[in-house]
Design a protein around this nucleic acid. Structure first.
Ligand SMILES: [Mn+2]
Ligand SMILES: [Mn+2]
Ligand SMILES: [Zn+2]
Ligand SMILES: [Zn+2]
Lengths: 143, 143
DNA sequence: TATGCTTTTGACATTCATTTTCATTTGACT
DNA sequence: AGTCAAATGAAAATGAATGTCAAAAGCATA
């Protein structure tokens, strides 16, 4: 799965005429080894610990590339930090976010997705993407 | 309706021991006279034109109060600006956002709201709020 | 392997929304 | 009027993200 993603990025890079660089390899490795919903800063720090040379700007730039390549999805929750999560081909999910402990639970709901399409159609919208987040307290934090 | 909101803020302020100030009155008046989904900056400029003395910080602080008082809802779209919209008691809606012309269409969907509650319950979450935005091109911009 | 051209990088500066600071002003109560 | 905490606003600070640009690195070609 990790190999597939590396392959996918290689293909994307080749198609776009991007060069293969040590930095991009490292950042991809570390991103793929990371849990879901990493903030750019978290990732940057993790990268720095093994590769002190890599700069802030490069991490930002490279994550945008991953998103463009379809490997990563940008997530904007309400903490002022951009996060990225792994994209699993053909899958989609939304998020339950605990405002107590910041944990995130993922969920999928076919019916909601279908209703979203209907709503968009009814208003003549052509959907590009959507976001849906439910904020509240998780089972642990509500007590 | 405007009077009710002013009353509601008075009550909120009284309950919280907040003082009644000229600035808060002005900001509330202008907020209530404003169309939906105003950015803080837009509101600030509108306020300044009639009341040059009022500061940036006060507008930010006061809008947060309105949100806390239940008069306003903070809306974070993806343009880096915080917006506020009017809250109509007992009503809730979500947004279709056109990435072409930045227009916003509001919609309500009972079924989706119900499904959200079920999902949260299934995961033991206590919902505080949620956001759902569908991004795409409106009927005009898709052509 | 060396050359030449172009992309990429990273240190640093910059931007921009929002928050903080803090001296001054103001509201509310006596 | 006097007291005092709350509120204000100008200016500075913050912090995420982006822009700049000289130096470094990739890659095609000789
Ligand atoms: Mn996720
Ligand atoms: Mn709205
Ligand atoms: Zn929690
Ligand atoms: Zn449009």
């Amino acid at each position: 799965m990790i190999l597939e993603k590396k392959k996918a990025f290689q293909n994307f890079a080749a198609a776009k005429g991007l060069r293969s660089t040590r930095q991009r390899d490292i950042i991809l490795d570390i991103f793929l080894s990371t849990h879901q919903h990493v903030s750019v800063e978290e990732l940057y720090l993790k990268i720095k610990s093994s590769n002190p040379g890599i700069g802030h700007a490069t991490v930002y730039r490279t994550l945008k590339l991953f998103a463009e390549a379809g490997l990563a999805r940008e997530i904007l929750l309400h903490d002022g930090q951009t996060r990225y999560e792994h994209v699993v081909a053909g899958e989609h999910h939304d998020h339950l976010v605990c405002t107590g402990c910041n944990s995130i639970v993922e969920f999928e709901d076919e019916t909601i997705e279908k209703l979203q399409n209907e709503i968009a159609a009814r208003h003549g919208f052509l959907i590009k993407n959507h976001k849906m987040e439910i904020y509240g307290l998780c089972a642990v934090c509500r007590n």
